[in-house]
Design a binder for these strands. Structure first.
Lengths: 404, 404
DNA sequence: GTGGTTCCGTTGCTCTCCGCACAAACCCGG
DNA sequence: CCGGGTTTGTGCGGAGAGCAACGGAACCAC
């Protein structure tokens, strides 16, 4: 889906510049032509012609001036991305839910639907639900199927880039070996991009959340499993084989429990929400939901605080290693457990500063994600929006024709 | 030193295309215009005009045809980078040596000098020796100082990008806190780029060695210390603060020895060459050089094999973690210990396949570096060559004038 | 020698961006 | 109310860049 971009032709240059304008408009919301020229470094006349093209395509429209201009002078005509320019679909397959959102090209969420599922859903059940939810969401958003440019999908496990299959360390066994991209592409008749949930969380925080101005960060998702997503140099990094970020399977205890990945003592076996409720079960005589455990910990319950704190310390040791290896500017913690706030983050920060070399561990900011349970599905949409950002004019035209 | 590159102007487009031609010529050695057109995707006429410009500048010249062309037809005129176009300096400050090389823009080594130093050299002593060696090397290479485009430098410790200072986990205490880039820039009156030794090893293997066709790999340098360098997406990655790759300070033993970084049980305390000779000392009654220990191991000595194997396993555990996190295509092992060959690599591979998730650990190739002790200084030169690769025409002119 | 093939340079042609000039739309002071 | 100042948006000419096509050049095969 990503275009070559290194093409040396004149057309590619214009594409890049046009894409830059779209990108600026997306991040800033509304801008005048003059402001666009300043930001992109292009001349005002070039910006004018590019904007005219985008207007002719219906991608950009003029907006009301709300705030007064900074000083005297001709008031600027503000421009913004047009809602009718198209929309993208985000689909997230979680452990016990399917969630679908519709987002327009200006990054505004038009619809957001979630359906709880029986545990351990199979891939087929998931796809059925997704297609169903998509129809509902489109209706709610007032978007015709033809206006869709593409769909992004999050699956509960790593995607091996060579085969396009879900890898063996997926949370849901029913998904291992399926090729979700092809499958959904067939069902929706749309271009589909796929990534695993943790990578999408990272992408979402990069696009909308705590990583907006950060070029290099680690996103950690602590839920039933523990996953990681990397943003390096402002781009999602998935490694040579597409599965980078698997921090949940770092060994933290040589003789620990056997993990579903086949090894022993993985971080996930001691610090996932599953491990936490397991540990709390005998003491409380019942199996809590992780939300209850988090609430107890925040309310002062010693046992819950201790168990979550221990998990945090284990995660902190691994995060410290990542800091040594990658020296990120930020670590963003998401997933169900991040609701625990400082009960989780304080001991995590402690361990990072203890185990990372000072220059790496001392500088890194460790913060909670700001998108909550919406992170993955937003990231799925962002997966497509990213590609559209620097998009080729021709390509966008084709896509609209093809879709319409 | 790196230029903006995102400029939207026509000149920037031409710069990019010209840089692409230079890059192709550098990697391939000799190419015809037609072949350049095929490789870059540019039209033959465009390639012709660009080559004409480069010829006018004296950067490119025609070469003899050596191998016969593939088939009948007019024989191609081969082009190559001109030796007189300029040269770059590579300077490596090791623990007990200073090494200087002169490399031309076609990546040919014109001179290579090394001077052993007393242990624990100070930064000032090092710089004195470097300047001295530089004069000798230039004489030997037949390169006038004015022909130099820039110098790359490797220092025995991490460089913090914010301050430009050598970080606290440097091997040589006399270097901590100095700003080597500024210092050398003053002394040589040349643009200077700096990185730490492990990063340079990675860059060298990327440019000349085992990482030539690999976009994502980890370079591990096992010597008195253990360092790492990352190549991600075909570029050296140094993280937000410039110190990425510090795999030597991953904790492998909670209650291990205190490391010079201040933590306990770092990989470096159990698997560096220093640790290896420490372990062998009581058994052999003498303190071996690491080269001797390696020779013994290769010759069948059980104790040496065991000690090196244990170190390899410790390294393997950490490399496995990196594989989980970054999913590289290759791991290249360099440094003094890499001379041990499979005595080192076999147990290392074992541990990686045991501790990494199968999709990451099963695919990764673990190979020795091919550049030996020359790796760092070659990388220092490559640091400058990289920047020249995509260089701006005007800038190159300025640099030559400024230098001359 | 003739035809085929490949390589290289030249010539229009189109596309793209920029600098500059100019009109438009506002504010302000007198 | 009116002219100066300021900022915005647009039109035009010019220069730069890349491409397709043509033709000449140099080789091989028959």
């Amino acid at each position: 889906m990503r275009r070559s971009a290194s093409g040396g032709s004149l057309a590619s240059l214009r594409d890049r510049n046009r894409g830059q304008i779209v990108a600026e408009l997306r991040t800033a919301g509304r801008l005048s032509r003059a402001e666009l020229a300043r930001r992109t470094g292009l001349s005002r006349s070039t910006v004018s012609t590019l904007v005219a093209e985008l207007q002719a395509r219906g991608l950009v429209g003029e907006r009301e001036v709300d705030g007064a201009g900074p000083q005297g002078g001709r008031p600027p005509v503000l421009l913004g991305l047009e809602r009718t320019a198209g929309a993208v679909l985000g689909i997230d397959f979680g452990k016990r839910h399917v969630r679908v959102i519709v987002v327009d090209l200006a990054h505004a969420v038009l619809a957001d639907l979630e359906r709880p599922m029986a545990t351990e859903q199979s891939a087929t059940e998931g796809f059925d639900a997704a297609v169903d939810l998509t129809e509902q969401a489109l209706a709610e958003a007032g978007v015709a199927p033809g206006e869709l440019i593409g769909a992004g999908m999050g699956v509960p496990g790593p995607i091996e880039s060579a085969s396009g299959e879900v890898g063996s360390s997926a949370i849901l066994p029913g998904w291992v070996g399926v090729q979700p991209t092809d499958e959904l592409q067939r069902r929706l008749e749309l271009p589909v991009a796929t990534a695993n949930d943790a990578n999408l969380g990272a992408l979402a925080e990069l696009t909308w959340g705590a990583g907006r101005d950060v070029a290099d960060f680690l996103y950690v998702k602590v839920a039933s499993g523990i996953g990681g997503g990397l943003v390096l140099g402002g781009e999602l990094y998935t490694g040579a084989g597409g599965i980078a970020g698997e921090i949940g399977h770092t060994m933290v205890d040589e003789h620990g429990a056997v993990c579903r990945c086949g090894n022993r003592g993985c971080l996930e076996t001691v610090a996932s929400t599953r491990a936490i409720v397991d540990l709390l079960e005998p003491a409380r005589g019942e199996r809590l939901a992780i939300e209850q455990a988090v609430a107890l910990a925040r309310g002062g319950d010693r046992a819950s605080q201790r168990v979550i704190g221990d998990a945090a310390r284990a995660i902190g040791v691994v995060v410290a290693q990542v800091c040594n290896i990658l020296n990120p500017a930020k670590v963003i913690v998401g997933g169900d457990l991040s609701a625990a706030g400082d009960v989780l983050l304080d001991p995590l920060r402690d361990e990072v500063s203890r185990h990372a070399v000072p220059a790496a561990g001392g500088r890194v900011e460790i913060v909670p994600g700001v998108l909550g349970r919406r992170a993955e599905v937003l990231g799925a949409a962002a997966l497509v929006l990213r590609d559209v950002d620097g998009f080729s004019f021709e390509r966008a035209g084709e896509a609209q024709q093809q879709a319409g």
